[in-house]
């Protein structure tokens, strides 16, 4: 038993981790506090606002080390354990430092048979890192994601928990990476319904920044 406590099967979190941020950095500004108060007002108890507050903190700090979780807990007057529990449950909250761009390539279900793994392999080769790792320059983190809900426009990926990129090909990846290098924000892509193409001659939104169409998925042999 004692041995089990000394050498746990699952690594326990470090009780005194080194702080990633200085005391001065670890504060919410007045606007952010106001925003959090707005979220709190939407729920009967402050607990409900935990997820929104963690999102806000992640946008501000880039990831959620324990000191940021503590900051959120203090702001909402909740126990740290609860905030820690929530933050570690969901995959989109980053518990360790990620690259500037997090590339979530979907390889699940439809994407598996429509070239998701080809895209992942191409990115692994291009960035020189394996899935689940960050490039040494700290710009890109490559991840394999579970179904992102864009199965008709497979293969696809999501960039930094934000916009989706559909119907990926190696050329498209190159263009996307070039745009990211140049610091251009990636646009929101509206995918046209096939019935709209037939009945309305194209996308129904006139305000869509970029329009994609559902296309024949590419051939692939790679399934893992």
């Amino acid at each position: 038993m004692a041995d089990f406590i000394r050498n746990p099967v699952v690594a326990l979190p470090d009780p005194n981790p080194a702080s990633h941020f200085s005391k001065e950095e670890l504060v919410f500004t007045a606007e952010e506090k106001e925003k959090i108060a707005e979220y709190v007002a939407q729920y009967p108890t402050p607990d409900g606002a935990v997820m929104w507050a963690l999102w806000l903190a992640q946008e501000k700090f880039g990831f959620l080390p324990s000191e940021v979780m503590r900051l959120v807990a203090t702001e909402l007057s909740l126990p740290y354990a609860q905030v820690y529990g929530v933050a570690t449950f969901y995959t989109q909250y980053f518990k360790e430092k990620k690259g500037t761009f997090v590339l979530d390539v979907c390889t699940c279900f439809s994407c598996q048979f429509c070239g998701g793994y080809d895209i992942l392999a191409y990115l692994e080769e291009k960035l020189g890192v394996k899935r689940g790792h960050t490039t040494p320059c700290g710009r890109y983190t490559l991840q394999e994601a579970e179904c992102l809900g864009a199965c008709g426009s497979a293969p696809m990926m999501q960039v930094s928990n934000g916009p989706y990129a559909h119907n990926l090909t190696p050329e498209k990846i190159d263009a996307l990476l070039a745009a990211m290098e140049a610091g251009k924000p990636l646009p929101f892509v509206s995918v046209t319904l096939p019935q709209d193409e037939d009945e309305m001659g194209g996308n129904r939104r006139t305000d869509a920044e970029v329009v994609e169409h559902y296309a024949v998925p590419p051939q692939t042999k790679r399934t893992q």
Partner: peptide
């Protein structure tokens, strides 16, 4: 929501 090895995947009503 039709996906996979078809010529015209997509959402159809």
């Amino acid at each position: 929501g039709i996906s996979g090895h078809v010529n015209r995947p997509g959402v159809y009503e």
